[in-house]
């Protein structure tokens, strides 16, 4: 039977690999090449200029501003989103205590599960448009309307340099939580019941059950969530593009690399320079993913 094996495997792989190479690998290579040119997007033959674009990046204030914003996103987004998602998932699955030997969620957990997942169903742009109304700077906005009820003057949320970025992070968290609740729920479901039973018998309360049983057994899932959210923190383009004022404003206070790439490519026609930013972003993301996986490596608990 052996002789038929390779043609069999090759037959399966040829289509996906071709598609992957054509639509993923080749464009990456092309972007790397474009980053070394001064292509402006309209001529057929870009000029090769070596590493000039990368030299320019080093002194570009807006670029570094965007990188700093990714730093903030990277710190805040995964931490907040994972924390909230964990709490919710715990409440939905184990928070109701045990009954008849099985762990149960809090009352109405089936309903909450659906509600939490809602934002995930909406397209990102729709979310941004919705939040443009939520954050509207006068009393017609949801937030400012509520503030008005308690007698606080409207705050121009997206127009305030100190608030805008955090308002955007809040949207990203709101959108992400639902997915991670589901992810963690699945993780918790795979924890064998008898471990929980044993913990209950030993007199563990809800909090020690969470920190001493659930969390360690979820470690793999957490690690995955962290990498996903980290990569999401390097994106945020769609929300920033639609929600922020002046696309990344006010005054660059919410800009991200995706936004700057887009601006340089399509509004300044500096495709070469934009590609250089893209390459920088590529390496940032790869470095982050590799680092996270390495640093958070732990011995998996065999169940």
């Amino acid at each position: 039977m052996r002789h038929g094996r390779y043609p069999f495997i090759v037959g399966f792989l040829i289509a996906p690999v071709t598609i992957y190479v054509t639509f993923v690998i080749a464009p990456y290579i092309q972007a790397f090449y474009l980053a070394l040119t001064n292509w402006r997007g309209v001529s057929a033959n870009p000029k090769f200029i070596g590493l000039d674009n990368f030299e320019r990046l080093l002194t570009d204030d807006t670029f570094w501003k965007a990188v700093r914003h990714h730093g903030v996103l990277l710190l805040v987004l995964p931490l907040v989103a994972i924390a909230i998602a964990l709490v919710f998932a715990f409440l939905l699955n184990v928070g109701g205590g045990s009954k008849g030997g099985a762990m149960r969620g809090v009352w109405g957990s089936r309903f909450y599960r659906i509600v939490f997942f809602f934002p995930q169903v909406l397209a990102v742009v729709i979310i941004a448009v919705i939040f443009r109304r939520v954050y509207a700077p006068d009393e017609t906005g949801l937030v400012n309307g509520l503030l008005g009820v308690v007698g606080i003057d409207p705050i121009p949320i997206m127009a305030d340099k100190n608030i805008a970025l955090f308002a955007i992070i809040a949207v990203l968290v709101w959108q992400a939580v639902g997915f991670y609740v589901v992810l963690f729920s699945a993780g918790m479901a795979s924890v064998p019941k008898d471990i929980y039973e044993a913990a209950v018998l030993d007199g563990a309360g809800r909090s020690s059950m969470f920190f001493k049983v659930t969390l360690p057994l979820l470690w793999d899932t957490l690690q995955v969530a962290w990498v996903y959210l980290g990569i999401a923190a390097f994106d945020a383009f769609a929300i920033v593009n639609v929600l922020s004022i002046e696309q990344g404003g006010p005054d660059g206070a919410t800009t991200v690399l995706g936004m700057e790439i887009y601006r340089n490519a399509f509004s300044y026609s500096q495709f070469g320079y934009a590609s250089a930013m893209g390459v920088a972003l590529f390496f940032l993301t790869i470095t982050f993913a590799a680092l996270t996986l390495r640093v958070s490596r732990r011995e998996t608990i065999e169940l």
Binding site: Q30, A31, L34, A44, Y262, A265, A274, V279, L281
Partner: peptide, 16 residues
């Protein structure tokens, strides 16, 4: 294929 280039830059490239 440039349509999918690292996030955006190659996007409209068509025929570089």
């Amino acid at each position: 294929a440039g349509l999918l280039a690292t996030p955006a830059a190659g996007l409209l490239s068509a025929c570089v």
